[in-house]
Amino acid sequence: MASTAEIQSGLAEILEEVAGVAPADATPEKSFTEDLDVDSLSMVEIATAVEDKFGVAIPDDELGGIKTVGDAISFIEKNQ
């Protein structure tokens, strides 16, 4: 199981690759859409990359509830 720090840095890598977000900006309080300019289709790409990297499943109906980087980290922690 990945630690919180590992999840945060892994997620930051995915965000950089999919949406060009600088790793230093990927802090827990940031909203994907409002602060990081990630659109709904990039969220799908992030979800599939998270699924591959952390072995979790993020169904489409759960994806809508993940608003911030912190939401994503706790989702992965709970479901990994």
């Binding site: 799908v44 979800a47 599939t48 489409d60």
Partner: peptide, 12 residues
């Protein structure tokens, strides 16, 4: 169309 669902399906 459920855009996110179709996008995920098409790309994976």
């Amino acid at each position: 169309m459920a855009g996110q669902a179709v996008y995920r399906w098409a790309t994976t």
